[in-house]
Design a protein around this nucleic acid. Structure first.
Lengths: 338, 338
DNA sequence: CTGAAAGCGCTTACAG
DNA sequence: CTGAAAGCGCTTACAG
């Protein structure tokens, strides 16, 4: 069934049907109403390929989500969809594997969907450096800073990873912990080393030590792991093995912290009695752990709202902004004062 | 940049470029190689709208996923994508809100993408009853039985929810529990009552009681809640409030069980010492809980593999199958014998 | 093996 | 307000 069938059925030309369908001007109210009725009755659905192919001015917004497992991203997507529901611009999320190339996908989406703007949830610096230049669409990178990337059509909204980690580590140090292990995150590009984000958070950890005049031996105190339950489990196991006097662990994501929780338990130790534990992100799950996880909460609602505000502005007048959204230390039950 | 630019640049006609791009027969190897080189150099990407619009024979497969939060579904999607990687048919997942109409989305996707076949991860009986008849594409409903739906182009692959729940409840009863609470799941269509799946699982619970000659009072022993952490938390709280002599809880998903775990803890009780707890699904998270969750594990790998096998067969010759995949009771640490 | 041309289902100037 | 027609960027019979 095509628009042609609707035209025949109603007796109008396909152009008129199209205009009625798209709320375009140039159709009488009566005609529009009648056509829409017939469309509904026939159950006609316009072919979106033909529509996209033709449509001159760009439509809604696209969200590129890096990794389906990331709960923080999932929540941000939800918030964005809610916020965009009012304005009736369509918004479509595209999910790309955590290890895949988000910029590559963005180029395709931009080419095919011609969105007004794109939102990236998560992004790898290397991918952006290599390919983002080809992308002409107004874009906002969310949860990762892009100010040093130097693109004129890329804003960013993020929390300050250095400060966040400094705050988390400071919380442990101020509670009297000195033997602290760190579970940092790797990604597909740095399978042995720190992901971008982890690198920044490592700097934050270092600052926390230095500013308190406490010695810090990153090589000894840190392990790298995937951002996953298993990664956290293995990371914590390795730390506990290596550092028998450990009293606290900082995991660079709540998911890793939850894995760590179990690893600690499996070695016959308890959180927080024997080992204090702090996570990062503030996902819902963290509040359901036993003990409730102390964590750095990234404000999903605000990240979503500010990203959209900035994107809409950027679409309008091209201004780019690199905004930092405040984080929050959520005190759970997983850190003990010594 | 269009295929026309590539044609000009190479000196060939656009038809030839198209054939080279699509590995169609009728291009000499040398020409194909040359064209592909130029394509790469120019960074040309074909417009998928135009391609979809034209393409006669249908392309890959589409997966309709009901709910981004469902970990079981997420794992099944991953498995399917891995399995389809070999055959180089593209496979695209489409995510629809847990409360939205998956069949509506399927109709759109079918209309626009013209997939060879569709896979539904989760599905609501009412939506299928109301609209699935319009969908002509070979389809498989995964994790929910469709044999009673009576569609000639809809197979299904699922675990036996009645038996699964009977096994779970039997496990509690055989461990000596008599005062057992049940947290059943609601959905958008039955906000007060049981979701389809929960209804079947309730029957399983009933069977477990009846076959052992133990009295069962479903109204008293059951609460309904959303399939979420919070739902589980509230459900368990309500049960503990209502039934002071409770010794065990069966939650109809692991996520709800994890919420319940915390609710039990917050009332000063312990799992499994005071309350035994059993979940459903067997998501990764269940194995990281403290205590490790006893649960009914649905075999994601086999659900994915059988669904694809059946779909491919169905695409070929139209045979539909309603297959039951075995489940497994995974014993964790959350059930205690009385 | 290659080219020229029709056409997929729409949207949108352009006339009237 | 409405219609007739061009054209979006491809694919695919049809000729050669």
């Amino acid at each position: 069934m095509t628009i042609r069938d609707v035209a025949e059925r109603t007796g109008y030309a396909i152009g008129t049907v199209s205009r009625a369908l798209n709320n375009s001007p140039g159709v009488s109210e009566a005609t529009r109403k009648y056509i829409l009725e017939v469309v509904k009755e026939m159950g006609f659905q316009p072919n979106s390929n033909a529509r996209q192919l033709k449509q001159r001015d760009r439509q809604g917004y696209s969200i590129i989500v890096k990794g389906t497992k990331n709960r923080l991203f999932a929540v941000i997507v939800e918030q964005m969809q809610n916020l965009l529901k009012q304005s009736n611009k369509p918004v479509s999320p595209y999910y790309v594997d955590e290890d895949a190339d988000e910029v590559e996908l963005a180029l395709q989406v931009c080419h095919n969907q011609k969105p007004l703007g794109m939102l990236f949830l998560g992004g790898n610096a290397r991918n952006f450096a290599e390919r983002f230049a080809k992308l002409t669409c107004p874009s906002v990178l969310v949860t990762t800073r892009a100010d040093t990337f130097g693109f004129s059509n890329l804003s960013s909204v993020s929390t300050d990873d250095v400060e966040g980690a400094e705050r988390a580590m400071g919380h442990l140090l101020d509670a009297g912990h000195r033997q602290v292990g760190i579970i940092a995150g790797t990604d597909a590009f740095t399978p042995q080393g720190f992901s971008n984000t982890s690198y920044l958070r490592m700097n934050g950890c270092r600052n926390a030590f230095l500013r308190r005049g406490i010695p810090f031996q990153p090589e000894e105190q840190t392990v790298c792991a995937r951002f996953s339950l298993q990664g956290g489990y293995e990371g914590a196991s390795a730390l506990l093995e290596r550092l028998p006097h450990l009293t606290a662990i900082l995991a660079m994501s709540d998911i890793m912290a939850i894995g760590a929780l179990r690893a600690i338990h499996d070695r016959g130790l308890r959180v927080p009695d024997d080992i204090s534990l702090i996570g990062y992100d503030g996902i819902e799950q963290a509040a359901y752990c036993i003990p409730r996880l102390t964590t750095i909460r990234q404000d999903a609602e605000q990240l979503a709202r500010r990203s959209l505000d900035i994107l809409l502005q950027q679409v309008e007048d091209g201004t780019i902004v690199h905004e930092i959204v405040p984080f929050q230390l959520v005190e759970g039950e997983s850190v003990r004062s010594l």
